[in-house]
Design a protein around this nucleic acid. Structure first.
Length: 574
DNA sequence: GCCGTTTTCGGCCCGACTGTTTTCAGTCG
């Protein structure tokens, strides 16, 4: 039983209680507990056994008992009891933006609606709009919300997809006859969201034997779209996955086929034709001769191409680039020596400066930058000027204790509606560096929003523009912003643009990362960690950097602490 | 339900926006 599943049970309990009209503070307590469980550094069962769970802030006796039951039995009697009392469709409705508990209860009580399809019908036929304090716009927004939910449910966030793919890969690798199991598709390309999980199996036995065994795996529910070498699985939880079987001599071609985007494969096919080759049925042919490709390097080499890293296989000119010569050496996680953008208990994080610093040092970083929220972000416990001074003392103390590791004093300052940063320049000047981010007033029009960001970039203390478009993947669109102008200004002023590595954001989008790099904009990778588990976000940020063709030289986190500070100083001097 | 450098009981984030109303409930970050 993993953390995600346990946290989900607690989340669900909170939602059911909320719909029942329970004390809102009790509801919030369960949500806090769910977050605390997600943020645990190790496994839940270990934390339970060692007693660290009981000591975790936000986890009390009631939560402890529920977690214990879930870990031991895989069920929660409280949740099952609640399911009998409240229709599950109402909980689904909570995900619709603009629909809260009060409206859902009103809809349920007056119209007797308790499923999404019923809700959609009522929104269309006008019943919803006639309810007190509802109207045409509310009904319309609900329809939009349902459509968004439906579209989003076809995709998974990268970290969830990776976890599912790893689990499936491990199960498939253990099947008799399978020599190797490799994750392909979007997960391997490290896209920001994933529609299909794809695993390639290398095997010397007939695919039919393997498919039969797959059908016997626990959790595999049904097969769909089966052909000789491919099968689409539905696994419990509704996730879909494609499994492709190949023989060792054709691994290269099959992996290329199963990994590349349609556009990449089209670029490859065109290139192959001009060289007298053909890509057909996931194999490489010269006339009617089958060309074996034992691995991808052999495949690309046969076509006269440098090997193309999976992250670049998007059909954006990588084939032409690989034909012209070696591709750039893309950023590696091990290139990063600085850890940027994290929150401590001073604002909305769950760990202290010391805990985060020790974790960063253990993860191999040489320096880090602490950036809690600023005072305008009241809902996130933003720091007052006095709080900032206190934190500075704390950081000094930890720096004195940790040899060979440096903590920088930073802030994630809100960019206010008029483009001002959330502290006076005298306060900002005392900090080692400043990230500026938008956390409110998302509804300005494109022109006003662009002016707001450009104005913030005028402030010499702003070193990094945080999560520049504000998107939340699968839940909130980016705010309207003229990124062309923002990138141009970033190049002029030396303001770095963040790749926010939180898998809910992955913002700046990788398509724009490449454009930023081409314009000479410095990039920083911001973990946006709110706890120790958030250190892992960086891997997703590195994936996005690679998709944006970034090399070591393009990224500020690869510099020594003095190199980073020199960049900030040059920016302040402009 | 959880927590305590104000508290073992009493409080827990608050201000702005949206869409509905003509003064405000509901939702969101």
């Amino acid at each position: 039983m993993d953390k995600k599943a346990v946290a989900q049970v607690l989340e669900q309990i909170a939602s059911f209680l909320e719909l029942k009209g329970e004390n809102p503070f009790r509801v919030r307590a369960f949500r806090t507990a769910a977050k605390a469980v997600t943020a645990l550094p190790g496994e839940v069962s270990a934390a339970l056994a060692e007693g660290t769970l009981a000591e975790t802030k936000g986890v009390g006796p009631a939560t402890l008992q529920i977690v214990q039951e879930v870990v031991q039995t895989g069920r929660s009697s409280l949740l099952e009891e609640l399911r009998e009392q409240v229709p599950a469709g109402l909980v689904e409705m909570l995900q619709i933006s603009g629909l809260g508990v009060a409206k859902i209860r009103q809809i349920h009580e007056t119209l007797g609606i308790d499923t999404l399809p019923e809700l959609e019908a009522a929104a269309r036929d006008g019943r919803l709009a006639r309810l007190p304090r509802f109207g045409a716009k509310t009904a319309d927004n609900i329809l939009k919300g349902i459509a968004f939910l439906r579209q989003a449910s076809a995709f998974k966030l990268a970290h969830h997809a990776l976890e599912e793919a790893e689990g499936l890969r491990a199960a498939l690798a253990a099947l008799p006859g399978v020599a190797q199991a490799v994750i392909a598709g979007e997960v391997r390309r490290r896209t920001e969201v994933v529609r299909d999980i794809v695993v390639v199996l290398v095997a010397d036995v007939p695919p039919a034997d393997i498919f039969r065994r797959i059908g016997e795996l626990p959790g595999v529910q049904e097969f769909a779209g089966q052909d000789e070498r491919r099968v689409t699985l539905k696994v419990s939880g509704g996730a879909q996955a494609q499994v492709v079987v190949t023989t060792p001599k054709n691994v290269g071609a099959v992996l290329v086929q199963a990994t590349g985007s349609e556009e990449h494969l089209a670029e490859l096919a065109t290139h192959a034709r001009t060289r007298g080759f053909a890509l057909d049925g996931a194999a490489l042919w010269q006339g009617s001769t089958f060309l074996p490709t034992a691995d991808e390097a052999a495949f690309y080499a046969a076509l006269g191409l440098a090997e193309i890293p999976p992250e670049l296989r998007e059909g954006r000119g990588e084939v032409a680039a690989a034909a012209a010569g070696p591709l750039p050496a893309l950023l590696e996680r091990s290139d990063l020596v600085g850890f940027l953008h994290c929150h401590t208990t001073a604002s909305d994080g769950s760990n202290s400066v010391m805990e985060l610093a020790e974790a960063c040092r253990a993860a191999g970083y040489a320096w880090m930058g602490i950036t809690d929220h600023s005072k305008a972000a009241a809902y996130a416990g933003g720091l007052s000027v006095d709080d900032l001074a206190r934190q500075a003392d704390e950081i000094d103390a930890v720096n004195a204790r940790l040899g060979g590791f440096r903590i920088l004093k930073g802030i994630e300052a809100d960019i206010l509606a008029d483009g001002a940063l959330d502290y006076d320049d005298t306060v900002l000047a005392r900090l080692d560096f400043v990230i500026g981010s938008i956390h409110s007033r998302f509804n300005l029009d494109r022109e006003a929003m662009t002016e707001r960001v450009l104005r913030a970039m005028e402030n010499p203390h702003l070193a990094i523009l945080g999560h520049p478009t504000g998107r939340l993947l699968l839940s909130r669109d980016p705010y309207p912003l003229d990124m062309e102008r923002v990138l141009a200004r970033a190049a002029e002023t030396g303001v770095a643009i963040e790749i926010n590595a939180d898998p809910h954001r992955l913002d700046l989008d990788w398509r724009l990362v490449r454009q930023a790099r081409d314009q000479g904009v410095a990039i920083s990778i911001g973990a946006d960690a709110h706890n120790l588990a958030g250190l892992r976000n960086v891997d997703f940020g590195v994936g996005i950097a690679r998709k944006g063709w970034l090399t070591r030289a393009d990224v500020l986190n690869t510099r020594t602490v003095d190199g980073f500070l020199a960049h900030v100083a040059r920016r302040r001097a402009r």
